[in-house]
Nucleic acid binder design. Structure first.
Lengths: 144, 144
DNA sequence: GTTTAAACATGATCTCTATCATATTAATGT
DNA sequence: ACATTAATATGATAGAGATCATGTTTAAAC
């Protein structure tokens, strides 16, 4: 939607970590990358960023890897979005004006804002664990 | 939203042509560019593309320029989007899967689709002339 | 303590979009 | 007819995001 490609990859990666969370396993970069069908290098950078922002956890050395705590597993996915695309993700104007607001709106402002806010709500209401469920149940997929 | 920067500029340019439509004037590239605060070169390419797709009209030579017919003025803005970003604009997956659908959904598919379709509806229901009105009335703006 | 497996850090390259530049074509007015 | 004005066409450049490559640090296992 207004998510960068990197951010989409990040969400998929985190959902995969949520799957691993159930068995208490950590996941390595290669592991994640192959499951979500993304480049190892890209996934590596993303996971590091997320770890730095405490959206996920990491452990170095053999037996190391990336993992979620219970609290992290119950985070809304908007946390991932904020960590990767920044806090401004849900503030952008539909027509690209830098200062679009109720007091100085673009011609699409009001209708666009409704949609944007709705998407924000979805991202705030859906926890990582929620999205994980659909994949575990075989209802949804993380790759084609 | 899922619109490219070029497409956003295109919409603003077309709205400006709708303003000119009222007085029957044609608008030149410089004219449009300065009003919507965009690069002349960029606006030039955009207007040419739109003319080629018959979303707008053009006339060469002195007294030439770009303009709308009555029919074009009443087009929905989705026509502009299709011309610039292509027909696939409203089909993209929220998580970037190339084959995301009801039969093979990503974890966000259903909720995302609702939003995406809603945005599509807005773009189909709003005519160029509608958006022009808000600018003419001083309610909305095309630049900061 | 040495080896090894993993995250971490930094920088380089690629790719796509957007922007810039130049030359050509067409139409108007004198 | 000629000069002028504006769209058209094509290609080059710049910038940002994404990807790739290499080396460094940390921690576990023996």
């Amino acid at each position: 939607m207004m998510l960068s490609l990197t951010c989409k990859t990040a969400i998929k990666a985190v959902i995969y970590l949520a799957i691993k969370f159930k068995t208490g396993e950590k996941a390595g970069i290669k592991n994640v990358a192959s499951y979500i069908n993304a480049s190892e290098h890209t996934v590596g950078k993303i996971l590091q960023s997320l770890a730095k922002e405490s959206v996920i956890n990491s452990a170095k050395g053999p037996t190391g890897g990336f993992y979620l705590t219970l609290k992290q597993n119950n985070q809304p996915i908007i946390n991932v979005i904020y960590a990767i695309d920044g806090k401004g993700s849900f503030e952008e104007c539909g027509l690209g004006l830098s200062k679009c607001s109720a007091t100085h709106p673009c011609p699409m402002h009001y209708e666009y804002k409704v949609i944007r806010d709705q998407f924000k709500t979805i991202c705030r209401d859906n926890k990582i664990s929620d999205l994980c469920e659909t994949v575990e149940d075989g209802i949804a997929y993380l790759m084609d």
